[in-house]
Simulated assay, not measured.
Amino acid sequence: MPNIQEIENASQRIKNHINDTPIVSSHLLNDWLGHEIHFKLECFQKVGAFKARGACNSISWLIEKGEKPDHIVANSSGNHAQSVAWAASRFGIPTTIFMPRYSSPIKIQATQSYGAKVVLSDTRDESDELVKAAATEKGTYWLPPFNHEQVIAGQGTVAFDIFQSMKGINAIFAPCGGGGLMSGTYIATKALSPETLVFGAEPLNANDAAESLRKNSIQRLKAIPDTLADGAMTMAVGDITFEYLKQLDGLFEVEESDLIYWTQWLNHLLKVQVEPTSAMSMGAVIQWLKSQQQKQKVMVILTGGNVDPSMMNKIWEKSQLDQIPGIE
C-alpha cells in the first residue's frame, strides 16, 4: 500500500515536470465566514489539473524500474485522460485513451492535442471494458485513473507540497471521485500533520463513495450521474482507495446548487477559473464550519480549471453573486 515514503519519492520524480502551484486566500471571504480559508490552485497545474501529478509519477516510476512500455492505455472521463496523454508524450510513449462520449469536449480535444488516440464510447462502462481488452496486448501498460499505488502517491504530492509551506492547518478538503486524491491526501496529511482533519466532498447526485461508506462495501452507481461535477462522475471507488476513504474524518455530500454557487463565487473572489468539481469542496467546508465554535484554518485543494463553454453557460445561467457567502 502507498505510504509517505512513496509520496516523497514521487515528489522527487515529478518536481522537474510539474508546476509549483500557488496557495492563495481571499480576505473578503475570510471576513464573511469568520475563518481562515486557503486554496491550493491545482487549476494552474500542467494540463490544468492535479491529475498530471499521478500520471507523471506512474510513468516515471515505470521507466525508473526499467519497464518503459511500448504503449500506454487509460480510461477516463476527463482530466486523467489529458494527464496520461501529456505525461506519456514527455517520455515519447504512444497512448490510446478510452473516454465516454459525455466527457467534456474541451477535455477530449486537449487529450488529442497532447498526441493521444481517443476512442469514444457511449458509456463509462464500455470505456472500461475496451481498455481492459487493449491492456492485454503485448508491451501495453494500463494506467488507471485512481486505483493504482503510484497514481495515489503522485496525487499525494499535492498535500505533501502544502505541508512543506504551511503549518497549523486544522482541516484539509478535497473532492472525491474515485478516491485517488483523497487517498494520497490522507496519507500525506496524517504523516506530516497528524492533527489535521481530512475531509472529502462528493456530489449528492453521484454519491457512490458515501453510499459505500454507509454500507461498508463498494457500491456502484446504477446510471450515469446527473451532476456538473464531471471530475467526480466515477461509477465506483477502487478497492485500494476505499480502504483510505474509510479512514477519513468525514465525507460530505454536496447539492448541485452549491456546486454552482461556489463555482461562481470562487471565480469571482480568487480571479481564477475553477471546475465545479473543485468548487464543490467549499460546500463541504461550509457544512463542517457550521459545527465549529472556534476559528479554523482550512485548506481547500482546487483540483482543476478545465471548463468548456457549454458548462460555463450552465454555471452562469443565473448569477448567485447577490447572495453573500456565510456560515448560516
Rank of each mutant, 00 (worst) to 15 (best):
Asp226Gln: 13
Leu228Thr: 07
Leu228Ala: 04
Ser212Gly: 04
Asn267Val: 09
Ala206Asn: 03
Ala210Leu: 04
Val237Asp: 03
Pro276Met: 14
Ala236Gly: 11
Glu202Gly: 00
Ile260Arg: 05
Glu253Ile: 13
Ile260Pro: 02
Tyr261Arg: 11
Leu270Lys: 00
Gln264Ala: 07
Pro276Thr: 11
Thr196Leu: 00
Ala201Ser: 02
Leu269Phe: 13
Tyr244Asp: 07
Glu211Gln: 12
Trp265Asn: 00
Asn205Arg: 13
Ile260Gly: 09
Met235Glu: 12
Ala236Leu: 14
Thr196Ile: 06
Val272Lys: 12
Asp208Pro: 05
Glu256Thr: 14
Met235Trp: 12
Phe242Asp: 03
Leu221Phe: 06
Trp265Ser: 08
Asp226Pro: 01
Val198Glu: 01
Glu256Val: 12
Val274Arg: 07
Gly238Pro: 03
Asp208Gln: 14
Glu256Ala: 01
Glu256Phe: 12
Leu245Asp: 07
Leu213Phe: 00
Lys246Asp: 02
Phe242Leu: 04
Gln264Gly: 01
Gly238Phe: 00
Arg220Ser: 15
Thr196Ala: 08
Phe252Leu: 06
Asp230Ser: 07
Met233Arg: 12
Glu243Pro: 07
Ala279Phe: 11
Asp226Ile: 12
Gly200Ala: 01
Asp226Cys: 08
Ala279Tyr: 00
Asn205His: 14
Gln273Pro: 05
Pro194Asp: 05
Ile224Asn: 06
Thr263Val: 05
Ser257Asp: 14
Ala223Thr: 14
Asp226Met: 06
Leu197Asn: 06
Asn205Val: 07
Ala209Arg: 01
Ala223Ile: 15
Pro276Lys: 10
Met235Ser: 12
Gln219Ile: 10
Val237Gln: 01
Lys222Glu: 15
Ser257His: 14
Ala236Pro: 11
Met280Leu: 15
Ala209Val: 09
Asp226Ser: 10
Gly231Cys: 09
Asn267Ala: 04
Leu259Asn: 11
Gln273Gly: 10
Thr263Asp: 10
Asn207Arg: 11
Leu197Asp: 12
Gln273Trp: 10
Glu255Cys: 13
Val272Ile: 03
Glu253Cys: 03
Phe252Glu: 02
Leu269Ser: 13
Leu204Gly: 06
Asn216Arg: 15
His268Thr: 12
Arg220Asn: 03
Phe252Asp: 10
Gly231Pro: 03
Gln219Ser: 11
Ala201Trp: 02
Ala232Ser: 12
Glu202Ala: 12
Glu202His: 07
Leu213Tyr: 08
Asp230Ala: 10
Met280Arg: 09
Gln219Met: 13
Ala201Val: 05
Gln247Cys: 14
Ala236Asp: 09
Glu255Ile: 10
Glu195Leu: 01
Ser278Glu: 04
Leu266Ala: 04
Leu197Gln: 13
Ala206Cys: 13
Glu253Arg: 15
Thr277Ala: 04
Ser217Ile: 15
Leu266Ile: 06
Pro194Gly: 08
Glu256Leu: 04
Ser281Ala: 15
Asp249Met: 04
Thr263Gln: 01
Asp249Pro: 02
Asn207Ile: 04
Phe199Tyr: 04
Leu266Arg: 11
Ala201Glu: 02
Ile218Met: 02
